[in-house]
Amino acid sequence: MGEEKNLQEGLLQELRRGTLVLSVLSQIREERYGYSLIQTLEEKGVPIDPNTLYPLLRRLEKQGLLESCWETGGARPRKYYRRTAYGDEVYKQLKKQWEELAQGMERLLREDGE
């Protein structure tokens, strides 16, 4: 039973992993800091673990999809991220692909009829 649960969790994690970049890019057109992103994504039903989000933000910044700056004016220093022009372009492409994929998946699942 435990193994079955692990397998299900693993498959679910795999399924969600592919959507993470698109989810994050969709919410970051304007400047956002890490924790506010976590909260927003959770509110909208796409929760993401902090230990997944922070390394992902770093990777996307390294790949040139995001840019960041530190704001030191508030109660605590915060690092804000936003999409770059290249990030906008990649986001548009991913969004288009996602819409096609979602339609295709819906057709597949409807045919199955369960």
Binding site: Y33, G34, Y35, Y54, W70, R76, P77, K79
Partner: peptide, 17 residues
């Protein structure tokens, strides 16, 4: 250094929440 700063920010925010 970068991760340390980010984690300080994150844990502070999370602790408030």
């Amino acid at each position: 250094k970068e991760v340390e700063e980010q984690l300080t920010e994150l844990i502070g925010d999370m602790a408030d929440g």
